[in-house]
């Protein structure tokens, strides 16, 4: 198992870029290509936004610990927070029918898009909750942009 790299920041929107940079630097060092780096950055951005908005329900209410490591052919990212239980893997995908060109303007919705991005851009997402809080693990297969 590869070395684990950890960063802890306060749960603020303005810290999301630092988390994304930390992860993307790790992914680049680990050999992910440009397309995969963009996918990892976007998935991390959405994961952090969800932690602030749904687990902490606001800014500056707790820390986000993020780590990355490489195991076998997988780039593994783990997020930990101490907010309320929020399982992104249990959120239904956006109702794409509501986004059709025929839809009435009032019905255009984009809720759940961030989670949809995480699911689509990463190869696997796992979630656990315990007394310490939420743990979200996102896996990107190496050599598979």
């Amino acid at each position: 198992m590869g070395e684990k790299h950890i960063l802890t920041v306060r749960g603020r929107y303005t810290n999301i870029r630092d988390i994304c940079d930390f992860i993307v630097d790790g992914a680049q060092t680990s050999g992910l290509d440009e397309g995969a780096l963009f996918h990892v950055e976007l998935a991390c951005d959405e994961a952090c936004t969800n932690i602030i908005e749904h687990a902490y329900e606001g800014e500056d209410l707790g820390d986000i610990e993020v780590s990355w490591r490489v195991a076998k052919d997988q780039f593994i990212i783990t997020f930990r927070d101490h907010g309320r239980s929020f399982d992104p893997t249990n959120v239904p995908p956006p109702a794409m029918s509501d986004l059709s060109v025929e839809a009435e303007p009032e019905t255009l919705k984009v809720g759940g898009l961030g989670i949809h991005f995480m699911r689509t851009l990463m190869d696997d997402i796992q979630y656990t909750f315990d007394r310490q809080g939420n743990t979200l693990t996102m896996i990107k297969q190496m050599g598979d942009a």
């Binding site: 976007l42 951005d45 959405e46 936004t49 303007p105 009032e106 255009l108 961030g114 991005f117």
Partner: peptide, 14 residues
């Protein structure tokens, strides 16, 4: 990110 998309879709709706 999706935050930008939400703003543009909200504008489309209006």
């Amino acid at each position: 990110s999706s935050a930008g998309l939400r703003a543009i879709v909200a504008a489309l709706r209006e």
